[in-house]
Amino acid sequence: MDKYYLLLGIVLVFIGIFGIIIRKNLITMLVATEIMLNGVNISLVSVSHFLGKVDAQVMSIIVLTVAASEVAIGLGLVVSIFRLKGYEASEEITELRD
């Protein structure tokens, strides 16, 4: 049974990577990052359930704090970018992509 939850976590990480690759909207890309982090969390918790130890859940809590700070910084950056570029569109921000 734990195998299937591990598999669910892996598939969710790949869905997140796929979303980051194909979308242009910055907020949707941040949401895809969150999906990846949640997939990692499910994998950690399923391993914890499998081994009967709670150590992996501690790492999952640390992933939660990293996700919270990532949202704070990432959304601040998104608003700053929109303000700096004069509210055009996020598809013009391709300096790191090209």
């Binding site: 734990d2 939850y5 669910l8 907020i27 941040l30 949401v31 969150e34 949640n38 969390n41 499910i42 918790v45 399923s46 914890s48 359930h49 859940q57 999952s60 809590i61 939660l64 996700a67 919270a68 949202v71 704070a72 959304l75 998104v78 608003v79």
Partner: peptide, 29 residues
Amino acid sequence: SFFALKADLLAGLQLVIYAVAIVVFYVLV
């Protein structure tokens, strides 16, 4: 799924941090 895997504290934290704090923050932005 956290509840199904018997990780009760993490499920609660998931509801409080993600479903409340982070989603509200996104909607605000």
